[in-house]
Simulated scan of single mutants.
Amino acid sequence: MAETALLATRRGFLALAAGTAVAATLPVAALAKSTPPQSLTLKGVGQVLVESRVLTIVSIDQSSRDVVVKTDNGDQFAYRIAPIVGSLAGYKPGEKVTVYIAPGAVTKLQKVDSGQKGLISQVQLDISATGPLPENFWGTSITMNVVLVDVNTDHKTVTFEGHDKLLRIIPAATPAVWNDIAQIQPGDLATITWIEAMAFIPKT
């Protein structure tokens, strides 16, 4: 339960401080020495908290840059690792990595009448979409089919479980997106797209 509730216990858009350094490509050794910030700023969203979890590498696809990882309880999923991380040759199955995630905002949501939950795409964003990010972080836009857990009309947020089994509570990016969210109910199946920042750093 601790893994699942990791993001649910904190509102990703209420943070205390912002990171300002522009991300740079670093080798694995340099990444390991960096200290990620506790919060950062995403363009159009504002300050968001940075959450972290330690995972074990299961497999690495050097071509697609998809890295399958697993939690301590055996849940497996894949992250698409941005080129900013550099070569993945230094990572090996069985090694521990720390993944840092800063949930941003929902940019699109549409109710669907049928289908299955699951990841549809992960697309890297450039800084024109996210604004400058701290060292080692990159922006990503994720689309998947989810079953909504909650819709909070007071805070204009939606709660759902991501492909990595983390529960996200994040706001709509625009009033138009919120209007779409407000039309659906918890338990509905929807195709949702959201942005977030993340970093993938070897655990030392």
Rank of each mutant, 00 (worst) to 15 (best):
L42F: 09
G94T: 08
S121Y: 15
A21R: 13
G19T: 06
F137D: 02
V112A: 01
I195W: 00
W194V: 05
G162F: 08
T140H: 10
L16S: 12
D188I: 03
Q47K: 00
E161C: 09
L6A: 04
A29Y: 09
Q183D: 07
V45R: 00
K70Q: 11
K96I: 13
V50H: 11
N179I: 05
P175E: 08
V112S: 07
D154K: 15
V112F: 10
G12R: 01
V112P: 04
R168D: 15
K108T: 05
I201L: 13
D126P: 07
V112K: 09
G104Y: 05
Q47E: 10
Y79D: 06
P27T: 09
I120W: 06
I60D: 08
L125I: 06
A17Q: 03
E135T: 13
L148C: 06
S128D: 14
P93L: 02
Q124H: 15
P171N: 02
A89F: 12
V112N: 05
P132G: 01
G131T: 09
R53F: 02
L49W: 14
V22T: 06
P103K: 05
H155F: 08
A173I: 07
L6S: 05
Q122M: 15
V158Q: 02
K203S: 15
I169Q: 04
A129H: 04
P37T: 05
T35P: 00
V106Y: 00
I81L: 11
P103R: 08
T56D: 12
G118W: 10
V22W: 07
Q183W: 09
A197R: 01
Y100N: 10
G46E: 01
T159Q: 12
Q62V: 11
T174F: 11
A176Q: 01
I201C: 13
P93Y: 00
N152A: 14
V151G: 05
G46T: 00
N145E: 14
S121A: 15
V147F: 05
N179C: 03
A89I: 11
F200M: 13
P186Y: 03
T4D: 12
L55Y: 05
V68T: 09
A82I: 09
Y91A: 00
T191L: 00
A102D: 07
L166S: 04
F137R: 06
E51T: 07
F137P: 12
G19A: 14
V45N: 00
A89Y: 03
I84W: 02
T157M: 05
V58R: 00
A30N: 11
L167K: 12
T25C: 03
T143F: 12
F137T: 02
H155E: 10
S64Q: 03
I192R: 08
F160R: 04
S64A: 00
T56K: 04
I101T: 14
Q38S: 11
G104T: 01
V149A: 14
I81R: 09
A89R: 14
T107D: 03
V112H: 04
P132R: 02
K43P: 04
L7Y: 02
V146S: 09
L133G: 10
L16G: 11
T204R: 11
T174E: 13
L109A: 12
G44C: 02
T174K: 10
